[in-house]
Each structure stands twice: as structure tokens, then as C-alpha cells.
Write a protein that binds this DNA or RNA. Structure first.
Lengths: 148, 148
DNA sequence: TCCTTATGGTTGCGATTGCAACTAGTTGTG
DNA sequence: CACAACTAGTTGCAATCGCAACCATAAGGA
């Protein structure tokens, strides 16, 4: 086939990794801005809150597993969220290493308020696409997530 | 419509910002790994090289404009790439502020070698999709990039 | 020309990250 | 029971980032 292609420079605008990093960067910047408006939280805090809100009782390790954050970052985010009384950790009876995490009432309020803002960020994105395109995109992204 | 939705937690797996950040994180981690194999470069270095390779003569500012990096990061990346003799800066005659950037021969070699690795990263992604899906995805991403 | 404003790029610095080493609790095996 | 191997979570530290202040050159009036 086109052997020459490999010596041509990558055309960034059509290059998947480039497109993803640009878009993701914008999105997370906007999300971070939303977070900052809530007690000066950052993206890590938001991610932990979102993970716990979705499935209360998740452990720090669960959060690490489903999130693009490493142990250390999650550990620190959890600690400061506890300090701010947005979440609590309930130690497991059977396994002393494990701490299950739950939103406090305050944490729930903050979460919902942030969720509103973050949904709005998603809304702006979606507004650029038709209903069908939205579905197609979501399906494609899911496929990529599974495949990798 | 479904008023209740706003008090339900966000379902992360179907949430665009979440999907994007997960995927982008994986991709850039892999890209960073490729970069590191070449003189210990990092993602910023790679991005600058890629931007210059695509359009030789780009200024640092041009790179900032098309890239998810800020002035400072680009400035430092450019500086170290010059130190490594992978790129050169040619000052403009008419405008003393501007420096146009070009790959050196060495830089070109490094770029092509890295590009190979990064294309492979893209390849893994694309392998999960049919030809049509690939096109659809690229189109959707382009649309999102323009719209935002 | 002189002064104000704008632009390209650099630098300093506090905050965040990534990684690896480490602690503490648990499980499995002899 | 003792000891090795494993898992959950914490911590230290160097590297990176994001932002704002800053420097130098250029452009646009009065």
C-alpha cells in the first residue's frame, strides 16, 4: 500500500490521539473550573465524589480502578474530602485494611450542585451533535474503552 | 421531562466527560511511554516536535494555539529540544520577538521514530473499530472540536 | 518622537502529579 | 503458630503543571 505514508508527518487534526487529548483537555479544564467553584475543590476531588455518589460504599481502591488516578492521588483526595466533611470512611469489620466511603449530607449537596455544572459541560458538547450522533459517539467510546 | 434525573447520580460509564478523560488518559500515557524511549522525552516534547514536523516554521505561539499546552510549558519544551539539538529556532528578520522553529536532521530522525510508535498506539485503538466506525468517530471528534 | 498598548516569549513559584518505597492488615502454607 | 506473599492505603520526593508576573520588541496614536 502507501509505503510513503510512514515518512510523512502526522496530520494532527485527523489523528485520534491528538483529537482525544485536545477534547479531553478542554473538558477537564471546564470541569475543573466547576469544581473550583465548590469549596475550591479540584478534579481529583470531583472524581472521587462522583465515584462514591454513583456507588456508595466504594473503597479508595475501587475508585482507583475505575478512574484515571493513581493510589496516591486518590488517597490524598479522600483525606481532604474527609477533612472537609464531604465524605466519611467506614472501616470494615472483617477487613481492617478496607474503608468504605460514603457521602455525608453536606457532600451530597455539594455533589449535586457540582453535577449540575458538569452536566452543563457535557450539554455544551452534546449540543454540537444530533441525537443520533450522540448515541453513535457514546457507543464508539464505549467500544474503545472495552477494547483497550 | 424527567425531572428526577437531576437528583440521580451521574452514571459515569455513559458520561461523555468521563469517557473522554479515561480514554485520553490511557492514550497519552502510552504516548508518553513512547516518548520516554526516545532520549527520555516527555509528552510536551513530543507535541512540540509533532507540531513543527507538521508545519515547519511554526513559532512557539503557533504551537500554543494548536496544542493543549500553555506558553510556559511550550517555552520550556522548546528550550530543551534546542539544547538537545532536535530543533532550531530561527529569529525573524522583521520581528525580533518571533522565532520560527524547525527540526534538525537529528530531530527529524527522532520524530519519525516516535511517530512510528505513536501511530502504533493509534493503531491499537483503531483496531477496535471497523473502517466505517473509524471514519464516523473521526468526523464526530472533528465536529466537537470545531463546536467548542 | 514619546508614550501607551499589544504581542512573543521567559521565568518564578505554589500546587498537582507519578512513581516508588513503605506501613499495616490479611491470607495461605507448612 | 510462624513466615512468606499479597492487598489496601499512606507518604516522600522529584518532575511537571498552571498561572501570573515579567522582559523585550513592535505597533499605533497624539
Amino acid at each position: 500500500m502507501d509505503v510513503k505514508r510512514s515518512v510523512e508527518p502526522i496530520e494532527l487534526n485527523a489523528f485520534l490521539p491528538y483529537q482525544f487529548s485536545l477534547l479531553a483537555d478542554r473538558i477537564s479544564r471546564q470541569t475543573a473550573a466547576v469544581a473550583k467553584q465548590h469549596n475550591g475543590l479540584n478534579l481529583s476531588h470531583w472524581r472521587v465524589l462522583a465515584a462514591i455518589a454513583e456507588a456508595p460504599g466504594r473503597t479508595a481502591n475501587d475508585v482507583v480502578a475505575i478512574t484515571p488516578m493513581d493510589k496516591g492521588i486518590v488517597s490524598r483526595a479522600v483525606k481532604s474530602l474527609i477533612d472537609m466533611k464531604l465524605i466519611v470512611r467506614k472501616a470494615s469489620k472483617d477487613d481492617g485494611r478496607i474503608g468504605r466511603l460514603f457521602l455525608t449530607a453536606k457532600g451530597t449537596r455539594v455533589y449535586h450542585s457540582m453535577a449540575k455544572g458538569v452536566r452543563a459541560v457535557e450539554g455544551v458538547l452534546k449540543a454540537a451533535l444530533s441525537r443520533n450522533e450522540q448515541k453513535a459517539l457514546s457507543a464508539l467510546l464505549s467500544k474503545l474503552m472495552e477494547a483497550t
